[in-house]
């Protein structure tokens, strides 16, 4: 875990480690679970014309412009234990998003989804469709073409989108605290922990330490994204 590495050079309190690990877990799960949907909607918006495309585009981008607290509230209505979908999921499949880390991951996924879709859509739009046609004439089915031509070519875009979404998930605050509250060890991610320290008189040092951790984490992920996409792109030029 990067948290352990960090702890070796800069001893962290158990509280900080807990918040850091939770943040990483929530963000990683959020990105991995939303990735297939991100690729699908990115492809849909880049390649297909259908009625209601503008509306879908708007809906996907909504979290980018709505106040996160509104997202959290809507999630509560939809996915909470008494929510429209949440109640059904709970009763039928035993899946619950209320007041647990899975709920925090869902909030993070929703809020970071537009960034993921945008990056993937742009990458797909940049793929030369003539290459895909060439692959078709070589006997490849559309699915094989997607797997062997389109997907490898948009990999840099997917990486960029994933890292952006990851960074956005790390920073997610408003939707999380509204949807799943601020429960230590369950939903108290880095930003929420920091918020708690700021609210507590005399805990300025702890808040500042968390601030440094957050900055380092964000910077590391952005740099990783650059290196990865540069490496993937270099082969193609």
């Amino acid at each position: 875990m990067p948290g352990d590495v960090l702890a070796a050079v800069w001893p962290l309190s158990a509280y900080e480690v807990e918040a850091l690990q939770l943040s990483l877990k929530v963000s990683i799960v959020a990105v991995i679970c939303s990735l297939p949907a991100g690729v699908f909607f990115g492809w849909l918006l880049a390649r297909r014309q259908f009625p209601g495309k503008t509306l879908l585009d708007g809906l996907i981008h909504l979290p980018l412009v709505l106040p996160p607290v509104v997202i959290g509230y809507l999630l509560l209505l939809l996915m909470g234990r008494r929510g429209l979908v949440g109640q059904w999921l709970d009763e039928q499949l035993g899946i619950s998003f209320s007041f647990n880390w899975q709920g925090a991951a869902l909030a993070a996924a929703v809020v970071s989804f537009p960034l993921l879709v945008r990056a993937i859509r742009q990458a797909i739009e940049a793929v030369d469709q003539k290459l895909e046609l060439a692959a078709r004439t070589l006997g490849a089915s559309p699915l094989k073409v997607f797997g062997t031509i389109t997907l490898p070519l948009i990999l840099p875009g997917i990486l960029t989108g994933a890292v952006l979404a990851f960074a956005r998930s790390l920073g997610e605050f408003g939707a999380t605290i509204t949807f799943v509250s601020n429960i230590p060890g369950e939903t108290r991610t880095l930003p929420l922990a920091m918020f708690s320290f700021i609210e507590t008189p005399g805990a300025e040092t702890q808040a500042a330490r968390l601030c440094v951790i957050a900055v380092i984490l964000a910077l590391m992920s952005l740099m990783a994204s650059e290196v990865l996409s540069h490496r993937a792109r270099k082969r193609l030029l």
Partner: peptide, 20 residues
Amino acid sequence: LKPEQRRVGYVFQDARLFPH
């Protein structure tokens, strides 16, 4: 028939090699 079912070899003006 779909292109992949036609068994035609197509050499394009711009080669269209797969860059990856």
